[in-house]
């Protein structure tokens, strides 16, 4: 009996608390940058595609909704010739972002992805690629990697010494 009264009293008190729910869509929620919503592919600070088509996001994906094909451009940079995410299967777990060694794939605080047609939830690279670096404005994979690309020769990456002269006999 006392517990019932106590419960009613507690519910009554809630009438004077601050509301948590908001009137979406008139009011918009404020989402943290780390919120796991729509997936994007970002770009390097120099504007190049960050994705090097390493397939790690695809293999990390627990629902296997990412598929891509690696290719290499004239500059020696790897890129995906196609990159497809089937958002109708995506569970927004963020494993792809964690797996990504180049910060290319990022989950964004955007969840408004309703579609009438199932197939419109299949996003290709054109749909995924954004024009900025996303959450990591500074990072550029090729500045750390040992691979030479045009504009960055061997030995010019961070923490690299100049290429060895094989014919040098000095100790």
């Amino acid at each position: 009996m006392i517990s019932i009264l106590r419960t009613i009293w507690k519910v009554f008190l809630h009438l004077f608390r601050k509301r948590v729910t908001i009137r979406y869509p008139e009011e918009r929620p404020s989402l943290a940058p780390r919120w796991r919503g729509r997936i994007v592919l970002s770009r390097d600070p120099d504007g190049g595609e960050r994705c090097v088509a390493c397939y790690l996001c695809a293999v990390a994906c627990p629902v296997d909704c990412i598929s891509l094909q690696a290719a290499e451009d004239e500059a020696g940079r790897r890129y995906p010739s196609f990159f497809r995410i089937n958002f109708s299967r995506c569970i927004f777990c963020g494993f792809c972002e964690e797996a990504c060694p180049t910060y290319a794939i990022q989950l964004t605080p955007d969840f408004e992805m309703c579609e009438y047609m199932h197939r419109n939830l299949v996003h290709e690279k054109e749909d995924l690629l954004i024009s900025g670096p996303g959450k990591y404005p500074e990072y550029s994979f090729y500045r750390v990697a040992g691979l030479a690309i045009s504009g960055k020769d061997k030995g010019e990456a961070e923490n690299e010494s100049a290429p060895v002269d094989v014919k040098d006999l000095m100790p």
Binding site: A58, V59, V63, D64, S67, L68, R84, R89, V122, E124
Partner: peptide, 15 residues
């Protein structure tokens, strides 16, 4: 067992 992309490979043709 780690093969990837099963749900996306042909999703552009048919979901």
């Amino acid at each position: 067992h780690r093969a990837s992309g099963r749900a996306a490979i042909s999703a552009n043709v048919n979901v």
